[in-house]
Nucleic acid binder design. Structure first.
Lengths: 188, 188
DNA sequence: AGGTGCATGTAACAGGTTACATGATTAA
DNA sequence: TTAATCATGTAACCTGTTACATGCACCT
């Protein structure tokens, strides 16, 4: 007779959103609103969030004992400040040191259009231009936050650097490809 | 009294998954299975798909009159081949020439770890190495499909080139950052 | 007096993944 | 004969977005 499977008494597992929140609290963003504002300025480029996730997840994290929230009204405004508990710090560091394959997911409609562009070659150049325009907008946004980021902690600064360098490079590729396609069109 | 809003008799809107399928059929992938196989080899790097989307969506597209499916059993195996209808071609080209802001979504847990790495600086180098390893794997996969892609249509080839160049660049950044972090650690 | 920003929250919905089910064919 | 591959499909689940609701505070 098979032994009954281990009762799997793991506490409910830390979700990806939960990790983001723990990390953000560690960076000093103590309210749901704060977390969202900062994330929209920074992490949004590689990890988007919404209030619809953040507020319910903060409650779940509190139930799990990873954060502790206390009301800190500013003026007459309702407001809850959260801090990490010891368990929360451990959970955050456990995630940062885990060797599991980190998730990577991309949905890029611009690439998709380029990929299928043989079905309408006349628009190919235009599609690449649109991709470049998007990257140029992104670059401008990243550059706008650079100055104040370079005074802050290292982690955010490194990701910002990577984002900027990466975007610059992408723009170069688009320009080159545009030139190449334009040259081919001329030949015909 | 306000005029009743236009009855919005637009036929049900073409979803993103639907677009992928139309594009794939245009590239000669005529069955659900075929589409998935090819997408897993190529478009997966910027747009993942699953059978759970593809098969139901093929039916929806047929209801919408954008594709036509006919049973083409190979041996005794059930099998349905799809082709684009005129309306399907128009829909595909309409999408390719539309000026709507193309969707872009990224979830990159590696970047997230780097972003929060101040909470466990000892692991920072390791995290960047993991990111590099991921990109190196990706590069190997992309290079493996390059030879046969370079004989095919232009669109897929261009996206492949972009993917390769982009990945190579990312690897360089990781290496440079690793060197820099290693040097800083030595100084201390 | 009214618009914007601060601050929290929820319900409905949309989209996608996973696990499962089925069954034929082919190569070892 | 058994494992892998071809081929299709569905139901349950999970995650995340959108739209909405509430109300205070601050600036003009």
């Amino acid at each position: 007779m098979t032994p009954t499977p281990t009762p799997e008494q793991h506490p409910p597992q830390l979700s990806a959103t939960g990790r983001v929140i723990l990390g953000m609290i560690a960076l000093g963003k103590t309210t749901g609103y704060d977390i969202k504002q900062f994330a929209d300025l920074t992490a949004r480029h590689f990890w988007a969030t919404s209030y619809g996730q953040i507020y319910p997840e903060l409650k779940r994290l509190e139930e799990m004992g990873l954060v502790r929230g206390r009301p800190k009204p500013s003026g007459g405004r309702a407001r809850t400040e959260y801090q990490l508990t010891k368990a929360g710090e451990r959970a955050l560091q456990g995630w940062l040191s885990s060797d599991e394959e980190p998730l990577y997911e991309l949905r890029d409609e611009g690439m998709l259009k380029l990929f299928f562009s043989d079905s309408l070659p006349e628009r190919r150049l235009e599609n690449i231009r649109a991709m470049r325009a998007r990257e140029e907008r992104r670059l401008a946004q990243l550059r706008a936050i650079e100055p104040h980021a370079s005074q802050g902690p290292e982690g955010p600064y490194l990701t910002l650097q990577l984002g900027i360098a990466n975007t610059e490079w992408q723009i170069e590729w688009c320009k080159e490809t545009e030139r190449r396609l334009a040259a081919e069109t001329d030949k015909e």
